[in-house]
Amino acid sequence: MSELKQQLRSDMMTAMKARDALTLGTLRMALAAITNEEVAGSTARELTDVQVLAVLTKEVKKRKESAEAFDGAGRTELADKERAESAVLSAYLPAQLSDDEIPDLVASVIAELTASSGEAPTIRQMGVVIKAAQAKAAGRADGSKIAAAVKSALA
C-alpha cells in the first residue's frame, strides 16, 4: 500500500475518533475514489503514491468546479462545503508552483529537449513539450497553466 494511501486511512481514523464529520466524509470519498481507480480496467492493481496524488488532484479539481457551479446557482452553503472539502484534500497535495515558476519550468524543459534533439521544438511539437513539462511538474501545477505557458514560449 502506498504511503499516501496509508496516511489517508490513518487520518480518517483520527477524524473518526475526533468526530470531525467534514474531514471524515472527505477522506472517505477520497479513499473510495482511490479504490475505484485501483479496480478500474481489466485487472485490479495497487496505486503508487504518484497515482494516488493524481486521483487526489482530480478530486480537488472536482470540488472547485462544483463550488463554482453552486455559487452560480446561488447555493453558497453547498459551495462553502465543497471549498472546505477541497481544503482538506489540498493538504495532501504538494505545494503548487507559482505563476512565476511555471514559465521557468517550461523554459528548462524546452532547453532539455533542444539539447537532446539538437534543435528547438516548434509549435507542432507542443504536445511533447507539454507532456515533458507536466512530468517534471509532478502534479504541482495545473495542466491548463502549463499548456498556456508552453504555447506562449513556442509562439
Rank of each mutant, 00 (worst) to 15 (best):
E3V: 06
S10H: 11
M13A: 11
R19N: 15
A21E: 12
L27T: 01
M29Q: 05
L31Q: 02
A33C: 01
N36K: 13
E37I: 01
V39Q: 13
D49E: 12
D49R: 12
V52C: 01
V52Y: 04
L56A: 08
E59S: 12
E59Y: 01
K62Q: 15
K62G: 06
K64S: 08
E68A: 11
A69H: 03
F70G: 08
F70R: 09
F70P: 04
D71I: 01
G74V: 10
T76K: 14
A79M: 07
S90E: 12
S90M: 10
A91W: 02
A91M: 05
A91C: 04
Q96G: 02
L97Q: 06
L105P: 00
V106N: 09
A107R: 15
V109G: 01
I110W: 06
A111F: 00
L113A: 13
T114M: 09
T114Q: 05
P121M: 06
P121G: 03
I123D: 07
I123Y: 07
I123A: 10
I123V: 14
M126Q: 14
V128Q: 12
V128I: 11
V129E: 00
A132P: 00
Q134W: 02
Q134V: 02
A135P: 03
G139P: 00
R140L: 12
D142C: 08
D142L: 14
K145H: 11
I146H: 06
A147C: 03
A148N: 11
A155R: 15
